[in-house]
């Protein structure tokens, strides 16, 4: 399995405060990688660095190397919008735009220049099917997306992310705002998506990491403490801090 993202000695500062310290990690493609750790440990910050969403915060400074398909994502020749098309993102709270369901999914392709109505129709249908929500919304594509339930909204957001055909999907605690039934639907969906996409997911829920991820990274106070196969990490952690965390001694 080849690595789609490789990170070397990456550090990140918010102004004076160092939020990430010397992160080194390789993420294999077409697998699910889970980031766990207590809140404020830097896992979400790290996730958002991978598609440069942190660019939106003016005080953030990043050093080190983050390579996507062998190319440094902070290089001057990189078009950040193209990068974000290839590395899509699903947010903690479902954030559909206040538009119709159809327009939400079509937003990405339209942004990247797809104009033909027939082509857009195809993309919208395929993306909604891939996100396992087509059956629920196919009769009301023109209705406002804000009328959907929270779980449906989140799957719509996944469909929206899939519509631009990304290679990687970053998910920032995608189920933390959802009820258990919606959560399990999203988990099933995520496992299915692994066939075609590389998925990196931040999660608060360790059972979730065990249930769906192939490898897990444990973050603490801005450091990547341990990273490895999920089963191994949870059964025989190498680091004392990992063991303390997964056995529930803190966090």
């Amino acid at each position: 399995m080849s690595n789609i993202i490789t990170v070397k000695d990456m550090c990140l500062w918010y102004g004076e405060h160092q939020a990430l310290k010397d992160i080194n990690i390789d993420i294999p493609s077409k697998s699910i990688t889970a980031f766990i750790g207590p809140s404020g440990c830097g896992k979400s910050t790290f996730l958002k660095s991978l598609n440069r969403m942190n660019d939106l915060i003016p005080s953030v400074k990043i050093t080190g190397d983050v390579k996507y398909n062998g190319k440094n994502i902070f290089g001057s020749s990189v078009d950040v919008n193209e990068l974000r098309r290839e590395i899509g993102m699903v947010f903690q709270k479902p954030n559909p735009f206040p538009m119709s369901i159809y327009d939400n999914v079509a937003y990405g392709p339209r942004t990247h220049g797809v104009k033909s109505k027939a082509k857009l129709d195809d993309i919208v249908e395929q993306s909604l099917k891939d996100a396992a929500i087509w059956e629920e919304v196919k009769d009301r594509l023109k209705k406002n997306a804000l009328g959907l339930s929270g779980g449906q909204q989140q799957r719509l957001c996944i469909a929206r992310a899939l519509a631009v055909k990304p290679a990687v999907l970053l998910m920032d605690e995608p189920t933390s705002a959802l009820d258990p039934i919606s959560t399990s639907k999203i988990e099933e969906l995520t496992i299915k998506l692994k066939e075609n996409y590389t998925i990196i997911m931040v999660t608060h829920n360790m059972q979730q990491a065990v249930r769906i991820s192939d490898q897990t990274a444990f973050f603490l106070l801005g450091e990547l403490v341990e990273y490895g196969n999920t089963e191994t990490l949870f059964s025989t952690p190498k680091d004392k801090r990992t063991e303390d965390y997964i056995t529930g001694r803190f966090g």
Binding site: L83, R84, R85, E86
Partner: peptide
């Protein structure tokens, strides 16, 4: 206008003006 709308759109690779 919620910040999450902007994040969502940026996350799809939309440019600032779009």
């Amino acid at each position: 206008v919620p910040q999450s709308y902007r994040e969502g759109a940026f996350g799809l690779g939309a440019g600032k003006w779009r």
